[in-house]
């Protein structure tokens, strides 16, 4: 009974590993999958294999995947909103999170294997541009979204092209800036 439950759970975690949107979550699901596999090995009378599976499958391999993921870039998007009176309120952040353009940029990052990370900041656009932690700066004013990217980055070019090709470039303007001291 317990064994059937564990095998079914293994199937669930295998499905989750394949279908989760974040690779980091996939790694965690795979570690749980390995641990369940170790339990199933115990039920089938192979305790030696179970020890090896538990140590290597959910320990070493998980760490190797996590190290590899650390290499993989986190793309930090800054939403600069100093001109909004209700900036950084919950309703504003929720509205921006559900924004169609932000959604499209997020999907673009996922397809390029970047991990998109959106930061809401009360800085002005100029301050956000000069901060080297941010790779892309977005502002939203008068119903128009402005996207600024560093001029030496190919991502902003590809983003502009994607919006043009999808015909979704109404209400969005792209800008480029050069960062001093780089």
């Amino acid at each position: 009974m317990l064994e059937i439950g564990m095998v079914l759970l293994m199937g669930v975690f295998a499905w989750l590993t394949i279908h989760s949107h974040l690779l980091r979550l996939s790694v965690v699901y795979m570690a749980i999958f390995s641990l369940l596999a170790a339990f199933v090995f115990v039920f089938h009378g192979a305790p030696e294999l179970a020890i090896a599976e538990a140590v290597i499958g959910s320990g070493l391999v998980t760490l190797l995947y996590l190290v590899a993921l650390q290499r993989y870039r986190v793309y930090t998007i800054c939403v600069a909103s100093d001109r909004h009176s209700e900036a950084l309120s919950d309703s504003y952040i929720k509205g921006m999170e559900n924004n169609e353009i932000v959604h499209r940029i997020r999907r673009f990052c996922m397809s390029r294997e970047f991990e998109p990370e959106i930061v809401f900041s009360s800085k002005s656009v100029k301050e956000a541009m000069s901060d080297s932690r941010y790779d892309l700066v977005i502002t939203h004013e008068n119903g128009e979204t402005h996207v600024y990217g560093p001029s030496n980055s190919y991502v902003i070019v590809e983003l502009e092209l994607m919006f043009q090709m999808d015909g979704a470039n109404s209400g969005i303007r792209f800008g480029r800036y050069t960062r001093e001291g780089l």
Partner: peptide
């Protein structure tokens, strides 16, 4: 795991992987 590997579940490889986890933990 290594010293009882001859009589109970365990053995060189399993114990050795546990030793490797020490390096991994240190790296973390």
């Amino acid at each position: 795991l290594i010293l009882n590997g001859h009589y109970t579940p365990g053995g060189g490889f399993q114990g050795g992987s546990t030793f490797a986890m020490l390096f991994v933990a240190r790296y973390v």
